[in-house]
Simulated assay, not measured.
Amino acid sequence: MDRQEVLSVVLKHLRLNVNGLEGREIDPSKSMVEFGASSLDIVEVVSASMRELQIRVPRTELAPLRNMDELVDLFTKIKNKTQ
């Protein structure tokens, strides 16, 4: 699975969980908080994305991530290891 496919999954779940993002350009170099996501929204976006991608990521690997690009890179790396 390529990085763009993983990014599409994450952005889909971000739009589903954060109000006001429909039709808005989302820059993945920014954090979800910059788009109005609460901590609960972030947990749901990450959890739903992992379920859809059928991957598991330890919380310790998620904690240092600063933006969506880093999240997508980590998910892509883990997804490609499991295939």
Rank of each mutant, 00 (worst) to 15 (best):
M1E: 11
E5G: 08
E5L: 06
E5C: 11
E5S: 10
E5P: 04
V6P: 15
V6R: 05
V6G: 01
L7V: 08
S8K: 06
S8E: 05
V9C: 02
V10S: 01
L11M: 11
L11F: 07
L11Q: 03
L11K: 10
L11V: 09
K12S: 11
K12W: 05
K12D: 08
H13Q: 06
L14I: 11
R15H: 07
L16W: 06
L16T: 08
N17F: 01
N17D: 02
N17T: 07
N17K: 03
N17I: 02
N17H: 09
V18F: 02
N19P: 15
N19Q: 15
N19R: 13
G20I: 03
G20T: 08
L21M: 10
L21A: 05
L21F: 04
E22S: 09
E22T: 08
E22V: 10
E22Q: 09
G23I: 02
R24P: 00
R24D: 09
E25Q: 12
E25H: 13
E25A: 12
D27A: 05
D27R: 00
P28H: 02
S29D: 09
S29T: 13
S29H: 07
K30V: 08
K30W: 05
K30N: 09
K30G: 14
V33K: 03
E34G: 00
F35N: 10
F35D: 10
F35E: 09
G36N: 01
G36K: 02
G36R: 03
A37D: 08
A37V: 09
S39R: 12
S39G: 03
L40S: 05
L40E: 14
L40Q: 14
D41K: 02
D41I: 03
I42G: 07
I42D: 00
I42A: 07
E44R: 13
E44K: 12
E44N: 09
E44D: 14
V45T: 05
V45G: 06
V46E: 09
V46F: 01
V46I: 13
S47T: 13
S47M: 05
S47E: 02
S47Y: 03
A48C: 14
A48Q: 14
M50K: 07
M50L: 04
R51V: 15
E52N: 06
E52R: 12
E52T: 09
L53Q: 02
L53A: 05
Q54K: 14
Q54H: 15
Q54V: 04
I55A: 01
I55V: 14
I55N: 01
R56S: 15
V57W: 06
V57L: 05
V57K: 11
V57D: 03
P58Y: 00
P58A: 01
P58E: 08
R59P: 12
T60P: 00
T60N: 13
E61I: 00
E61C: 02
L62M: 07
L62T: 05
L62I: 11
P64N: 11
L65S: 00
L65D: 03
R66S: 12
N67V: 05
N67Y: 06
D69E: 13
D69L: 12
D69Q: 12
L71Y: 06
V72N: 10
V72Q: 10
V72K: 04
L74V: 11
L74Q: 14
L74S: 11
F75M: 13
F75T: 13
T76W: 01
T76L: 01
T76H: 06
K77P: 00
K77V: 14
K77D: 14
K77T: 11
I78F: 07
K79E: 09
N80D: 01
N80L: 06
Q83K: 12
Q83N: 11
Q83L: 10
